[in-house]
Design a protein around this nucleic acid. Sequence first.
DNA 1: TATAGTGATGTTTTT
DNA 2: CATCACTATA
Length: 738
Amino acid sequence: MDLSDLSPAQREAVTHGEGPLLMLAGAGSGKTRALTHRVAYLIDSGRARPGEILAITFTNKAAREMATRVDRLLGGASGVWVHTFHAACLRVLRREAEGVGYPSTFAVYDSADQERLMRQVVQESGRSEREWPAAAVLARISRAKAELVGPEAFRRRYGGEFRADGVADLYARYQRALEASAAMDFDDLLRLAVLLFQTRPEVLAAYQERFRYILVDEYQDTNTAQYAWVRLLAGERRNVSVVGDPDQSIYGWRGADFRNILRFREDYPGARVVRLVDNYRSTGRILAAANAVVRHNAERLEKDLVATRGEGVPIGYAEGSDEAEEAALVVGEIARLIGEEGLAPSDIAVLYRTNAQSRPLEEALLRLALPYRLVGAARFYDRAEVKDALAYLRLVVQPRDRVAFVRAAQSPRRGLGEAALARLVAYAQERGGDLVQALAEADAVPGLTAPARRGAAALAEVLAQAARMEAEGRGPVAVLSFLIHESGLAAHLEGQRGVDPLAEGRLENLDSLVGKAREAEGQGISLSADFLAQVALASSLEEAAEGEGAVTLMTLHTAKGLEFPVVFLTGLEDGLFPHVRSLAEPAQVEEERRLMYVGVTRARDRLYLTRARARAGHGQSGTAVASRPSRFLAEIPQDLLAPFGAAAPVLLAPSRPWGGAVARPPTAAPAWTARPVWEGTEGGAFAPGEEVVHPHFGPGTVVAVRGSGPEAVVSVAFPGGGVRHLLVAYAGLRRVGA
DNA sequence: TATAGTGATGTTTTT
DNA sequence: CATCACTATA
């Protein structure tokens, strides 16, 4: 294997033999490369067979990338386990579920499912949902689970503190409800995987024997459960290689503890430590800014990134009077970079602290007809109709899944209301918890109305038939399409066509869902349970199509691990970034600062920093609040900065036929005028049925119009893209042929 | 008692 | 602006 293109430090890490290894790797120092090469090296040198290596990454996307790169280095599919902690634990638990008292068909609850269940639990405990918001309670419970603290331990530890007794009670109830549903939430996947190893020495021994080498990426973001799991699995052999950067620990809020990496040498005495500090990614100025910012953290290992490239150009800085102007400045500069400097849109990323900040940026990009992709917003799997369809499938796989039951029973409406569901659930709980069985025996359930009985019987029949199909091994595609059509879901949506302009798009989404199942089957997934697990762990990040000629918009958190030639960091205001909710705790401000460090170090060649002098408060209308510049700005040496984009105000641009080359803004005399685009819409308002073209979404059909003039909202159906509601004033819609 | 329609209301970051 | 909780109606 060719190791000649590695630095000496990288090579030392890659060729390390037995025993613990700690790679302290700064941003852009080639840690992923080192990790990937190490996996390949272990196999290539005969130290391990592919099946004996477990590599843990932080995201599914990173896992896929690493697997691909390892395979490429080895010249073929290798079969190394490359997974996130959650996926790896899930895979183990699926095989060993009985060991922790679960059926192997256990369901996996995503955060929406967790919230639904918690809301029910709060209600059943007689508490008010206003006083005990499910999300907040779950956040505390999640932290506890990440630290392997159960309900009882929680009460012992925090009892008497503000609301802790209530949370402890809800924790215990929630856990019982999960178990009754034969479901695990994300934290349980880790917690129970640890429990399994702790209580089943023979199981642990088998996995220790199997995984002779363990590699963990982003080790600074591991929580107690993940830490413990690795420790157990590593056993006496201690062949653990971890990579991380304490300065990039940004998940403390979900239980990650960067002290895990600082402690590594104590936990694994004799560990070899390799430091990767040479940065191959960014220009000198960008690194100087990154170093300067993170140096303000008190709790930290001293470590400066060393530049290996030239100084580069100054860091751009600009302020807008409000978020719209800030966005216009950013987008104006983007247009200039593309038009004058020949950069591709995919070279550019715009980062922000909160998802809500994307909107003004999107609007500005749409106005200039610049293509963009928004990473990490709404998940496909979070759409209502998709969740409906999946709820049916979940019930087939796991008839005790209560969240799925409630959802499936009520969509479409079939005479089963709140009261009927409560009775069915109660009936089921008295005899083992099988909710589908309760449906089938609805005639025996007291207190149901006649329509409720009919609805229950019909649903039970469909589910029974689907269960038969599943048992015959017909696969997720067949079972899912059967359910979509026989449950009445498709029929209901078809009936809504013409009434609800969204119905068409929903039907298309159901088709896409079946398509996803088909894809999964193509990857060898033949059980619906496995398909559902894949769905639950899928994040919104992986769905966004890869860079194809579009500017990338995403949060700073999702940008971790990525790099772009040009990066804009927006919303640099105290209270937004650092976020208000971190301001009270110095440790949390330090985490925000690390987030800033992560953001800055995403940039290869050019970095821009922006803020708005005032920003609209939460309510949308009018009330903009003055802001102060982010404290992180002042921490950057001012001689690294230079203003940008001062003079050129970005006006409304005329729309451009979709599909053409990327907008090339005129350099000298602008050919465009400030004329709002709707004035060009000859013949006035749009009407349903008209064919139109949208600069970003492409061709579509108008399905509904509300209001008139520039304020009008047009609903347009795009093939594949569903239905979007567009404000005529901004959408830049053109009639076909106009 | 189920449902459809109408208001209020809310935004940190994610496996 | 979209979900969700609440209310009026059937």
